[in-house]
């Protein structure tokens, strides 16, 4: 039972990080129908800021807000430079654009910073663990769970009570009508990117605090997981993204924890098999977006 509880805490921490990542993708998708595969590179940028802060001797408490800021700014710039010109293009055009942005950034990181991964100095405290009710919980796990809760509460408040947030929800429901009501498209889309940048930044801090290094290609794996989580939850639905993130975290941890040793090698295919199974029963995801116009024939 103890082990089960302990693994559940592990699953919560991992699921929370996935939820933040999936939310970052969902915020943008819900408004402009773009799956931003360069989302991971926003994390890499935040990671490099943490690295340079460590080298410059800047305290971690200052480095984290700087990293978040960098990823927000990068997200807004990304929208302005790469995505605005193709905003009215087809979904495929935007998807390919996002791949191009990701690749260009990766090559820039490799050529301008380093091909090798660079160490990030982290406070020793993050490697510690605390004992709660007979369980050993790593500080970074605890931080992941707390950060997820804080971000979800913040997002809920932002979407319900902030003008930009309400405008974003309106735009997600029907952009054309929202514009007729006087909502500026540029503000809403830039706002969505800024929000996804913030989510990427928070996820990056959690991600980097586990791996202690940044490399030019580090963004790929998290964005892949986020993509799976967002599909699982229901593309374009924010609540769905959170649910999908947590479910994916639970699937991964429980399989890794309780699958018999001889089956462990097939952990990932089994995990993805479960995802497919869920989608068979709920083809639009766990909590589908109300406005997703998926056609069925």
């Amino acid at each position: 039972m103890d082990i089960f509880l302990q693994q559940t805490v592990n699953a919560l921490a991992l699921g929370g990080t996935y939820a933040l990542l999936a939310l970052g993708l969902a915020v943008v998708f819900s408004i402009m129908g773009l799956i931003n595969f360069a989302h991971g590179e926003l994390m890499t940028i935040a990671g490099y800021v943490l690295m340079y802060c460590g080298i410059a001797g800047v305290s971690f408490v200052v480095a984290v807000p700087l990293a978040l800021m960098a990823s927000v700014i990068a997200a807004v710039l990304m929208e302005r430079i790469a995505f605005r010109p193709v905003r009215n293009g087809s979904g495929a055009t935007m998807l390919v654009t996002s791949f191009a942005v990701a690749m260009i950034l990766q090559v820039l990181f490799q050529n301008l910073i380093s091909t090798r991964s660079q160490p990030v100095l982290l406070p020793a405290m993050l490697s510690d663990s605390v004992h709660i009710a007979g369980m050993v919980i790593g500080v970074n796990k605890l931080a992941a769970i707390i950060a997820t809760v804080v971000m979800l509460v913040f997002l809920d408040w932002f979407m319900k009570h902030q003008k930009t947030g309400i405008a974003m929800r309106a735009a997600a429901e029907d952009f054309a009508v929202a514009r007729l009501m006087g909502i500026r498209a540029n503000t809403v889309i830039a706002g969505a990117f800024a929000l996804s940048g913030l989510l990427a930044g928070v996820a990056a801090v959690l991600w980097v605090s586990q791996r202690a290094s940044v490399d030019p290609l580090m963004g790929f794996m998290p964005v892949l997981k986020a993509f799976i989580a967002a599909i699982l939850g229901g593309l374009g639905s924010l609540r769905g993204a959170v649910a999908g993130g947590f479910l994916l975290g639970f699937i991964e941890i429980y399989l890794s924890a309780f699958l018999p040793p001889e089956m462990q090698e097939f952990r990932e295919p089994i995990g993805l098999g479960i995802v497919v199974l869920v989608l068979l029963f709920r083809p639009n995801g766990l909590i589908p977006s109300a406005t997703l116009k998926a056609e069925k024939v």
Binding site: D2, I3, Q7, N10, G138, Q210, Y254, P261, E268
Partner: peptide
């Protein structure tokens, strides 16, 4: 005493760590 497998690029090792600790 035993063995575990992971995939390259796996972010989270907490499940394996918990198992070894137990």
């Amino acid at each position: 005493l035993g063995q575990d497998t992971h995939s390259i690029g796996q972010q989270d090792f907490s499940a394996i760590a918990t198992r070894i600790a137990a």
